[in-house]
Amino acid sequence: MTAPLPSWKAVMEPRAAEVLHTMGASGFKQLHDEMVLFIRSLALEVGDAVQAGKTPPGLPMTIDGVVWYSIPVFNERVLFSYSIFPDQQHIRICDFIWIE
């Protein structure tokens, strides 16, 4: 039997995590939980795209040599940016903007 392949993960920078936490603590727990699931699903989708040699979701922009992908969350007032770290099999959320 072969070992399962490691799964891609999402890592949030402290400021982004703080905004997500504030969302849940401000009475928007359902939105918080939906964003956690959305980000987790995105990490898996990005991993599949990278492994298949396809373009990951989002609008790419290069800042100081790092490619960041900007994602607006459909029907929510949330926007965030992520970068890809294929060697570590994770995406890193840097900016997480929630307009309350």
Rank of each mutant, 00 (worst) to 15 (best):
M1W: 02
A3I: 09
P4V: 08
L5C: 12
S7R: 15
S7C: 11
W8L: 00
V11Q: 13
V11S: 03
M12L: 12
M12K: 02
E13L: 06
A16V: 02
A17D: 14
E18N: 11
E18P: 04
V19W: 07
L20V: 05
H21T: 12
H21W: 11
T22M: 10
G24S: 05
S26Q: 12
G27H: 13
L31I: 05
L31F: 10
H32V: 05
D33R: 10
E34Y: 03
E34V: 01
R40Q: 15
S41I: 02
A43G: 09
L44V: 06
L44P: 00
V46K: 06
V46F: 01
V46I: 11
D48S: 15
D48M: 08
A49K: 11
V50D: 11
Q51A: 14
G53P: 06
G53I: 05
G53A: 08
G53L: 09
P56D: 13
G58Q: 08
G58I: 02
P60I: 07
P60A: 15
P60G: 05
T62H: 13
T62V: 10
T62G: 07
T62I: 06
T62L: 09
I63C: 03
Y69V: 15
Y69G: 07
Y69H: 15
I71A: 01
I71P: 02
P72A: 06
P72K: 03
V73R: 08
F74Q: 15
N75K: 09
E76V: 03
E76Y: 13
R77D: 05
R77E: 14
L79H: 14
S81W: 01
S83L: 03
I84A: 02
F85P: 04
F85I: 09
Q88E: 12
Q89T: 12
H90K: 06
H90S: 05
I91P: 00
I91Y: 00
I93S: 04
I93T: 01
I93H: 02
C94Y: 04
F96I: 03
F96L: 14
I97N: 02
W98Y: 12
E100M: 11
